[in-house]
Amino acid sequence: MSMVTLSPGLGTTTGGFHSRISGIAGYRPERVVTNDEVCEQIDSTDEWIRERTGIRTRHRAAPDESVVDMSEVVARRAIDHAGLTPSDIDVVLLATVTHPYQTPAAAPEVAHRLGLTCMAIDISAACAGYCHGIGLASDMVRAGSAVNVLVIGVEKLSDFTDPTDRTIAFIFGDGAGAAVVSRSETPQISPTVWGSAGDQHRVISQDDSWVDVRHNPDIVFPTIKMQGQTVFRWAVWSVAKHAQETLDRAGITAGDLDVFVPHQANLRIVDSMVKTLGIPDHVTVARDIVTTGNTSAASIPLAMSRMLEEGEIASGDLALQIGFGAGLAYAGQVVVVP
């Protein structure tokens, strides 16, 4: 009989750690675009856009400003807010749908700029990408495979929007948000409630595939299209149910919340979700879309970090955040504001 016995543990950790968001930050590109400027290329008005979406202004990245550039800026801010340095980061998860390369992902270049060689991957879950990142990061920290995970949500949607399409040209903005998820003494991130509805994959979608572009000379450049009414119904009635499940999983009710940060898709969706979920008046609701537009994966950290900076919410507040978008995909969790 052999004297050598394999360890049944295979080097695994015991897990069971707790997780928290230790830092959060946002970055908005300098240039502000008004509804009047958007209407120079579409047959619409400032009033129409405000009534349908709540949006007054959005930010637009400079032509030479990339998602990697915006990610680096916001990552440094979030790491600083967490009281850490880049070398403390074990993993980079970057949520985006507007990195303009099929390959490679943006995350390794962002990690490199931060002086890191750690595991770094992109997440493609559109407007739900950031909350998928927080869920994955929290699970990694809880399992013991990472101590500090950098989660970035970043979009340069202006590169993938047709400025002459009057159904969508006014919706999107550019920007970046980031958070650090760290090992914690106490549980500060609830289980994530997440899922998909792939039967509705065309409801929000790039119109033509890259292969179509290659073979059809009539296609100039693919852009994002959206069936607004269908998305509205899904968000307000289906996603709101998942938001309620998120509260249930966390063992709390809407009345226990201090903050509600839904993805900033459309102010009408935000207000209708508040109504459907029965969010009480004392809860501070994110309405950052008014001056930031819909920034997809970046919208939740952009909203939360601004609310924190402007004193609307405080460290220690209990927040429900839920992302939802193309896929269709959704993810939500209850978190303690860092």
């Binding site: 509205f232 307000v236 459309n266």
Partner: peptide, 8 residues
Amino acid sequence: VDSLSMMT
């Protein structure tokens, strides 16, 4: 009634 109100 606009398109989103119609959905509601």
